[in-house]
């Protein structure tokens, strides 16, 4: 299980709440660091799949790498 790290331009709880809901729909373990605008996802899924899911929130998302 790789831990993928993403930058997601979240500015408030509403935004992190939206990220939480979209990630809940694809059933992955994740952790959101709002102050640093980071999202960590622990999953076997391909990072592109995770990237697309995060992009659904309409926020700017960049893939940083695996930890």
């Amino acid at each position: 299980m790789a831990t993928h790290e993403f930058f997601v331009d979240m500015t408030c709880e509403g935004c992190s709440g939206a990220v939480t809901r979209v990630l809940k729909k694809i059933d992955v373990k994740f952790d959101i660091d709002l102050p640093n605008k980071k999202v960590f996802i622990e999953s076997d899924k391909d990072s592109d799949v995770l990237l697309e899911t995060l992009k659904k929130t309409g926020k700017t998302v960049t893939y940083i790498g695996t930890k």
């Binding site: 500015t11 408030c12 709880e13 509403g14 935004c15 709440g17 939206a18 809901r21």
Partner: peptide, 8 residues
């Protein structure tokens, strides 16, 4: 439901 600020 779920919006908390102008950016949402």
């Amino acid at each position: 439901e779920g919006m908390t600020c102008g950016s949402c």
